[in-house]
């Protein structure tokens, strides 16, 4: 119970901080959405429109108004399309979740397996895997994406007909990051005392790998995966724009560029929530896997 309360308190704190940071940052950014849409119109019309949005009030009052609306669960409407932000979020979150799910699935499977293979010393295969992992983290994603579009998609009937392509590209790169973390953890722990002890005790090597090394070395990877999941769910901006995915990342980018305050706020709050939940999830999972943490 206390745990849940503490979690709730920290979640509310995080959300409030995220909302406030965004509020301040947005108002510091030059320009606004009215200017961007009504730059040809008269100054009077612009002034009226700003007044309708209460932008003529002191910033403190605007902030209070914003927080009150937030407490009531109101995210407002887009300054460009007038659509409720909740509706836009729901619509744009779908492509993002889909892409995140498939690329994370690919990444986790290939990342963990690849990392393990690269870490245990089966000379040639491990070397090949190390190279592939190296490529996955060192080739820029828009380079891979561009290649895939120009070389692969063009022969398969286009990007829109092959929705697996962005997931493959994203999964390949994300998996590389996971694989490196797995690989380095395993290598670190292979040197650890308890593993040496196990070896000295004459335990069977594969037993050691599974029971001692993997269990411990995959622990930090859980956090890493949660973090990557967060990144993916917060919208892979480049992948989304390369492959024409109307997801959260592009939405946020456009909203920031167009100074669409309510939309930026909504997206940030949503991503923050996703991160909070994922973190909590990873923590619970880590605790379950490592009983020592519960003491």
């Amino acid at each position: 119970m206390i745990n849940i309360l503490r979690f709730a308190a920290s979640a509310v704190l995080t959300l409030w901080l995220a909302a406030s940071l965004t509020f301040v940052a947005l108002r510091l950014l030059p320009g606004d959405a009215i200017q961007a849409q009504y730059w040809e119109a008269s100054a009077e019309l612009q002034a009226t429109l700003r007044q309708n949005l209460h932008w003529d009030e002191p910033i403190g009052v605007q902030y209070a108004r914003f927080l009150l609306a937030l407490l009531r669960g109101e995210l407002g409407v887009s300054l460009y399309t007038g659509r409720p932000v909740t509706e836009i979020l729901a619509e744009r979150f779908l492509p993002t979740t889909e892409l995140a799910f498939w690329s994370l699935s690919i990444a986790v499977v290939w990342g963990i397996l690849g990392g393990i293979i690269a870490a245990i010393d089966i000379t040639v295969i491990s070397a090949i895997f190390r190279l592939i992992i190296g490529l996955a983290v060192s080739v820029p994603i828009y380079w891979t994406g561009t290649l895939v579009i120009f070389v692969v998609a063009i022969h398969l009937g286009g990007v829109r007909e092959n929705s697996a392509l962005p997931a493959l590209v994203l999964g390949f790169h994300t998996g590389g990051v996971i694989a490196r973390s797995v690989q380095s953890n395993i290598q670190d722990i292979k040197q650890a005392d308890f593993v040496r002890t196990a070896h000295a005790k004459g335990l069977f090597p594969s037993y050691i790998v599974v029971q001692h090394i993997l269990r411990v070395s995959l622990l930090p990877v859980v956090h890493m995966i949660a973090l990557q999941a967060g990144f993916l769910l917060s919208g892979a901006v480049i992948t989304e724009s390369l492959f024409q995915r109307a997801g959260i990342g592009l939405l946020l980018l456009d909203a920031v560029q167009g100074r669409d305050y309510p939309v930026v706020q909504g997206v940030v709050l949503m991503i923050a929530t996703v991160f909070i939940l994922l973190n909590r999830f990873a923590e619970l999972l880590t605790h379950q896997l490592d009983p020592r943490l519960n003491s």
Binding site: T146, I149, F150, A153, I154, H155, L156, G157, G158, V159, R160, E161, S241, L242, Q244, A246
Partner: peptide
């Protein structure tokens, strides 16, 4: 009508049939 924002890949979208 579909959206193709990235100028670099517009021709590719045409050629691939998107």
């Amino acid at each position: 009508f579909r959206f193709f924002r990235d100028p670099a890949t517009r021709a590719a979208a045409l050629e691939s049939g998107d």
